[in-house]
Amino acid sequence: MKKVINQEAAIVDEMIEGFIAAYSNDYKKVPDVKGITYKHSSPDKVGIVIGGGTGHEPLFIGAAGEGLADGVALGNVFAAPTPDTILEVTKSVDQGKGVLYIYGNYAGDVLNFDVASELAEVEDIDTETVQVTDDVVSAEEKEERRGIAGDMFVLKIAGGAAASGLPLSEVKRLTAKANDNLFSIGVGLSPGTSPGKTEPMFELPEDEIEYGLGIHGEKGIRRSKMKPADELTTELLEELQKVAGLQSDEEVAVLINGLGKTTLMELFIVNRKVQQWCEERNINVYDTDVNSYCTTQDMGGFSITFMKLDDELKKYFDVPAASPYYTRANRGESE
């Protein structure tokens, strides 16, 4: 797989340099570490730090902005950020109100954020943590599941709550509630290639797909031959519904997330079926987002995410947000 890079060892630093060069009006690099911060965070708010391995762009580098994260801690390609990276970003965004950490539940991220949180305590910065656990096929127990595209919705609630001026304990409670209401399932169509490597990240025959395949190639639930979009989408929705248990009249936000290679055109075709499925079951779709927020290089496939909403979550979901890669416009009072 051809990749436009210089040297493998320089990928993360050069990506950050290019990002800052593009958006220096709004973002700056945290000195000496692989981290960035948003320049215009409103004063006296709880800081939000999100982080994870590089290679999933626009997550995580594109996740900071108005009503979103204040800082981003980046690791090497597909590896968690180091404790000192997280700590330096934490110090940069702390305004004396504490900092909330948000990351997908992977062993490396948990370990590094836990160490960073202890280091922050020594610096007198309060931190709280919400691990995103939305991938329903990755484990039976909710808290053991991996985090995938649902990161974006959890961040949206956290950012909205922090922008509303709530204290750390409340921002944490709402963010954890968003995660409790979050259910995703993915399907892999073809493997991606890690930059600098010659072999794809995993093997998948050309004519086969894997249900529930993780974003780093973690084993899913079953393989089958490729199918038409409607059939594939329906099967995924049925697996997702086993765990999500959506009821008639329940309200949800929907995210159709592409994994990198799957096109927006295809994602819309998926979404068409998702909306039909919801309508047939009387599930109210409050809002839909069709985009590629959490990718794995040139991996083919997509995921479907539902976040169940109540009035409280809707309030923070509707707080306007903006980054170069995520926008939520003000819906206004008239709606």
């Binding site: 391995g53 690791g75 090497n76 590896a79 968690a80 950020p81 180091t82 404790p83 000192d84 990276t85 062993a107 490396g108 370990l111 590094n112 160490v115």
Partner: peptide, 12 residues
Amino acid sequence: MMKSMGGASGVI
């Protein structure tokens, strides 16, 4: 090691 590696191995 902790500063440079990242991932689970760096901390461990």
